[in-house]
Write a protein that binds this DNA or RNA. Sequence first.
DNA 1: ATGGTAGTAGCACTA
Length: 257
Amino acid sequence: MARFTIATWNVNSIRVRLSQVLDWLKTNQPDILALQETKVIDASFPWQDFQKIGYQAYYAGQKTYNGVAFLSKNPLGKITTDLPNLQDLQRRILGATYKDIYILNLYVPNGERVGSEKYFYKLDWLKKIRDYLEQSLYQYPKLIVLGDFNIAPTDDDVYDPTQWCEKILCSTTEREQLKGILDLGFCDSFRLFSQELNSFSWWDYRKNGFVYNRGLRIDLILISKALQSYCNNCKIDKTPRSLDRPSDHAPVVCLFN
DNA sequence: ATGGTAGTAGCACTA
């Protein structure tokens, strides 16, 4: 397999974060960057800025909320924004092919609070994603599912598991839904490699969460079995989180070769 | 502190 890097980053508004994303792309040169929470309608997506630095943009946005995108050095194929079993006005899904790899960029619903209406929407949404992935694996054994999952897979991905016990992003039911996806034949690429304790990808803006490393690891790159032997590294890049006016999420990068 | 901060929009909602 030719060397290939893919990354995911919830940017919390592409318009506010545009210069940071451009700088990060110039420095890191991933083949593909998947974005979440772009928060722009398609007509306002700043695709020209990315084209100038050698990236083609694919996007599915809406006003104010959600919005997903791919920035890619090479053209992507088979762009999908809705799944056969999941048609939603909320723009949270973007699928594309790159060579023989299928890539699914997800902005999983937050869920607000365990037991809330949004929580059940999240669980139902994840079940539909699972069913779609189960089918897709037949056609695309090489499958990458990445994005903001809004689930911390285990207590090792939580700065204070006691405080977060059975809270949104950490509840047993959410974790079981994620496990249901992993059990199809995916792994959490971050855990294929040794990592520092307390590695997180999201820190609350409030109460200096980043300064005290009070975070969660909710941004994931899941890879199917057919890709595992090619995966050489996965890491979280905390540097953009320390910039002025940052996103509350850090990029996660996965390398194949 | 049923708080806190940020983005969008221009208020209240979402995260």
